[in-house]
Structure formats: structure tokens, C-alpha cells
């Protein structure tokens, strides 16, 4: 018995060491970005990104540039916030509505429609991106946030998540609502929406994260730099003119912060939203 205890203890130590090493490897790139944000942008160009502290070269110049310099960073930041908030709200509203339709009723054509949800769930956007892009330009929606928001409001993975979540609510609740004289839509808005809060939280975070980090589709449809999101704007800085690299590095580091704060506060929902698809009931 005693030897087993010792054995277990060694196992714990060995595993902890393994995971600490892994954790260090995962944190290293972010740490490198962090220390680079205190060094002149030109150093990056010349020496690449590394872990050398070079404390004598440290200054707050990049941060001063970020907060007081002449550039469009905060405009991009604001655009990203606006676009993320609108995308998340519209996606949640529309997808919850649709998910409820799938979960609460049995209707003709339901299975076919649900298989379509599953199929769309697995088609990468890249496949339809070009014809969709052409369509947006025919409709005159180029350089318009509508083209970033509209196609993704009824989002297949969010619908799938809400449907799974709502399958769990007792049908008697809906019946009780009907007996009380609520309409079908009244039941959804007054009885169901309030109990969906945890599901909304998980999906808000998942969709918010992908909207904040979205790059490829906005790259195609957004043209003017005054409408750039943070990811689009940051990537215009990779050409090393003037202060670009200083702003790129400090701006990249700063762009992680809003999401990081959300992650620290709502970790549970991040993980729930992320793993929602993996264990299908």
C-alpha cells in the first residue's frame, strides 16, 4: 500500500512537470510579444522576435505612440467593437429563434432542414466565398458592414447549440403557457428566452471571439481604411514604413486584452461554448 502511495506521488510530480513545460511553451510567444512591446519596432525588423530582455533598450515609446500617436488604431478598435457587438446580438437573436423552432416542434420537413443545418455546419466559408463576394458586389453591399453581418445571422453552429440546449426544457412548460393563453411567439419570448441565459452567455462569447478575430471575409468585402476592423488594420502595418512596426507590436498585444479580460471573467462559458459540439447527446 505504501509503495503505491509513493508511486502515485511520483506520477503526480512527473505529470506536473510535463504540464508546466507545456504551459511555458504555450506562454512563450505571448511573453515574447509582451517584452517586444517595450522595445523599438525597428529592433524587431532587425533582430526578429526573441526572448532577449535588453532592458537598456526598453521604453514606453510604443505605448505613448499607441495612446497619443497619429494613427487609426483606435478607430479600428472602435469599428471592431461595434461590429462584434452587432454581430453577436443579431446572431444570438436570430439563431435562438430558429433553434427554438427546431427544438419545440415536430413539423413536416424538420429532418431535412436539420440535416441541412448539419451539412452547412461543415462547409468551410472559403468554399462559397468568391461567389458570395460577387453577389455582395452586385447587391451594392461592398464596403458595407451589412455584408459582414447578414450572411452569418442564422449561424448553423449556434442554431445547433441552441437546439440541443432547448431539447432539454420540459414540454409541459410550453403547454402551461398555451393554456394560459400565450401565443406561440409569446411562449418563446416570455417563457423560453429568460431560461436560455447560460446558453446565450456561451454562444455570445464564442461568436464574439470569432467576430473580434474575423479576418478573411472582411478582407474581401471591406475596402476603405476608415471602416477597417482591428485585424484588417493591424495587417496593413506589416510593411515597415515609419512607426509601423512599433504600432504593430504594441497594437497586436493590446488587441488580445479585451478578449483576455472576458476570458478571465467568463471562463466557464468559453469552455462550454467551445466544447458544445464535441459531445453530441
Amino acid at each position: 500500500m505504501k509503495s503505491k502511495k509513493i508511486h502515485d506521488r511520483y506520477a503526480t510530480i512527473a505529470m506536473t512537470i510535463l504540464f508546466i513545460i507545456l504551459a511555458i511553451m504555450i506562454i512563450l510567444p505571448i511573453y515574447a510579444l509582451f517584452i517586444a512591446s517595450f522595445k523599438p519596432g525597428g529592433d524587431l525588423l532587425q533582430y526578429g522576435l526573441n526572448l532577449n530582455l535588453n532592458l537598456e533598450r526598453w521604453s514606453l515609446d510604443n505605448y505613448i505612440l499607441l495612446f497619443a500617436g497619429k494613427h487609426e488604431y483606435w478607430l479600428w478598435f472602435l469599428n471592431s467593437i461595434i461590429l462584434t457587438v452587432i454581430s453577436v446580438l443579431s446572431t444570438l437573436a436570430v439563431s435562438a429563434f430558429v433553434g427554438y423552432g427546431f427544438a419545440a416542434y415536430s413539423f413536416k420537413g424538420q429532418n431535412v432542414m436539420f440535416v441541412i443545418v448539419l451539412i452547412i455546419l461543415s462547409i468551410p466559408l472559403e468554399v462559397v466565398m468568391l461567389p458570395l463576394y460577387k453577389q455582395m458586389s452586385t447587391w451594392g453591399l461592398m464596403d458595407n458592414y451589412l455584408s459582414v453581418i447578414l450572411p452569418f445571422m442564422a449561424n448553423a453552429s449556434t442554431i445547433f447549440f441552441f437546439r440541443q440546449y432547448l431539447l432539454g426544457i420540459p414540454k409541459s412548460l410550453l403547454e402551461a403557457g398555451r393554456i394560459d393563453g400565450a401565443t406561440e411567439y409569446g411562449i418563446f419570448f416570455r417563457l423560453v428566452v429568460p431560461i436560455m441565459k447560460p446558453a446565450f452567455a456561451a454562444m455570445a462569447i464564442l461568436n464574439g471571439m470569432s467576430a473580434w478575430n474575423n479576418y478573411l471575409w472582411p478582407l474581401l468585402v471591406i475596402r476603405s481604411s476608415s471602416k477597417y476592423t482591428l485585424t484588417l488594420g493591424l495587417n496593413t502595418l506589416i510593411n515597415p514604413y515609419g512607426d509601423n512596426y512599433s504600432l504593430l507590436i504594441v497594437g497586436s498585444f493590446f488587441s488580445i486584452i479585451p478578449i483576455f479580460i472576458l476570458f478571465v471573467c467568463f471562463q466557464k462559458y468559453f469552455i462550454e461554448g467551445m466544447t458544445a459540439g464535441a459531445v453530441k447527446g
Partner: peptide, 17 residues
């Protein structure tokens, strides 16, 4: 939580790093 951190970064930031 630590292992999840990189998933928070955009491809632009990760690619640049």
C-alpha cells in the same frame, strides 16, 4: 486555462508573432 489562451488570439496576431 493556460492552454486555451492561444485560441483567443486572431490569426493576424498569431501569424505575426
Amino acid at each position: 486555462s493556460i492552454y486555451f489562451l492561444p485560441a483567443l488570439t486572431s490569426v493576424v496576431v498569431a501569424g505575426t508573432i
